[in-house]
Computed example of a mutant assay.
Amino acid sequence: MATTQKLDPATEITNEIIALLERGTMPWRQPWKIAGGGVPLRHNGERYQGINAFLLGLRATMMGYSSPYWMTFNQARELDACVRRGERSSIVVYYGSAKKRGAETSDGDGGDEGKEGGGSYRFLKSYRVFHVSQIDGLDASYHPEPEGDPSDGPQPIPEAQAFFDAIDADVVIGGDRACYIPSLDRIHMPPMARFESASSYYSTLFHELGHWTKTEDRLDRSFGVSSFGNEAYSKEELCVEISAVVGGQRLGFAPNHIENHAAYVGSWLKVLKSDSRFLFTAAAHAQRIVDFLVAASETGTKAKEAIHEAA
Rank of each mutant, 00 (worst) to 15 (best):
P190T: 11
S89L: 03
E46K: 12
Y264V: 13
D165I: 00
R221G: 02
G102M: 05
G111L: 06
S197L: 06
K273A: 06
D8F: 11
L79M: 15
G24H: 10
G248K: 01
A303H: 06
H308I: 10
F130D: 03
K235G: 03
Y180N: 11
Q30I: 02
A60S: 14
I307L: 13
H308Y: 12
Q49V: 09
G229K: 09
S197Y: 06
D168L: 06
A2K: 14
Q134N: 10
K6P: 01
H43A: 13
K115A: 03
A284K: 01
G64T: 12
A284T: 04
K125P: 01
F123V: 06
G229I: 04
E241K: 03
G153I: 00
E116F: 03
G96I: 03
A53R: 00
G247N: 01
A162C: 05
T3K: 12
E159Y: 04
I157R: 01
G111T: 00
T301N: 04
P156E: 07
I17N: 05
Q30A: 14
Y233A: 09
V246H: 02
G102K: 08
A160T: 15
E216M: 03
R88A: 09
K125I: 02
E236H: 09
K304L: 08
S183P: 01
Q287N: 13
G266T: 14
A10G: 08
E309M: 11
H43I: 10
R23A: 11
D112T: 04
G64P: 06
I157V: 10
W70P: 00
T25R: 13
I135L: 09
M1R: 14
T25V: 15
P154I: 08
D220A: 13
L7P: 00
S227K: 09
I157D: 02
K6F: 03
E116S: 03
K33R: 15
G247L: 04
T25I: 14
D109A: 14
S66Y: 15
G247I: 04
T215A: 14
K99L: 12
D168I: 00
A166H: 04
I167K: 04
F130R: 06
T215F: 02
S133N: 14
R288I: 00
S234Q: 11
R288H: 10
L205Q: 12
P190D: 09
A296K: 05
G266R: 12
E78S: 14
I91G: 08
S276W: 02
L79C: 06
S183W: 02
D149L: 01
R85N: 13
A296Q: 11
G57R: 04
L58C: 08
P40K: 14
A35S: 11
F163V: 03
A10T: 06
L58Q: 06
E208Y: 02
V132A: 11
M189F: 10
G229L: 08
Y142D: 08
A244E: 05
Q30M: 09
F253S: 01
E237V: 05
S226H: 05
L279F: 10
N256S: 10
G96M: 04
G111K: 13
